[in-house]
């Protein structure tokens, strides 16, 4: 059973994750992926979300995710996009959490693909509500194709990260933080 750090060390660890996620998010904004459809993106920040779900507790992962979404909205200066990010991110997060129970660490790539599709679905649902039309669902085929491909890329990255970091977590935190916190 992994012992996770608590207290100040936990905050620092989560903040580090959030900082990485935020950086990835901002960097990705600078990549001009001007396909003519809203919502097509790589979703690099989701790599961090997936890694956090598999290596940390759900509460930590949630904190990292929503910190990144909120600050990302502030940094990118688009308030409207915040609503879509929240919807997509939440749906993706829930899907990732649920799937974690059914897969081993060798299927993290697949979890990320599903998460990517969930993200697109969430954004489309919000768009349908805002514009009050079902016509936006016509974009789902394109979004799914892009989502599967992007999810594959981020998923493989996340899986590699988890396999590399997992050892560090298990070794370090049980020895250092587990003892240091006395319980």
């Amino acid at each position: 059973m992994k012992k996770l750090p608590s207290g100040a060390k936990r905050i620092v660890l989560d903040a580090l994750f959030a900082a990485v996620a935020l950086s990835l998010f901002v960097i990705e904004l600078m990549i001009p992926l001007s396909v003519g459809i809203p919502g097509v993106k790589l979703g690099l920040a989701n790599i961090v979300t997936v890694v956090a779900v598999f290596l940390l507790s759900p509460v930590d992962a949630a904190g990292i995710l929503y910190t990144r979404i909120l600050l990302g909205g502030v940094f990118s200066g688009q308030a409207m996009a915040l609503l879509y990010s929240l919807a997509g991110g939440t749906l993706c997060f829930i899907a990732t959490l649920v799937l974690k129970r059914f897969v081993t660490e060798k299927q993290i790539w697949a979890v990320s693909v599903i998460g990517s599709l969930a993200h697109n679905l969430g954004q489309t649902l919000v768009a349908a509500a805002v514009l009050r039309t079902g016509a936006v669902f016509l974009y789902l085929p394109v979004l799914f194709i892009a989502g599967i491909l992007a999810g594959l890329f981020t998923g493989v990255s996340a899986q590699i990260l988890v396999s590399r970091l997992g050892g560090v977590f298990r070794a370090r935190y049980e020895n250092i933080y587990g003892r240091g916190n006395g319980r």
């Binding site: 809203p38 688009q78 409207m80 996009a81 879509y84 768009a127 805002v130 514009l131 009050r132 039309t133 079902g134 016509a135 936006v136 669902f137 016509l138 974009y139």
Partner: peptide, 21 residues
């Protein structure tokens, strides 16, 4: 598929698109 400007909540549909409110 509709032309959509999400930030402006502006949209162009055709008359045979799936219905709108």
């Amino acid at each position: 598929a509709p032309i959509v400007c999400l930030p402006h909540e502006f949209m162009i549909l055709t008359d045979r698109s799936p219905g709108t409110a």
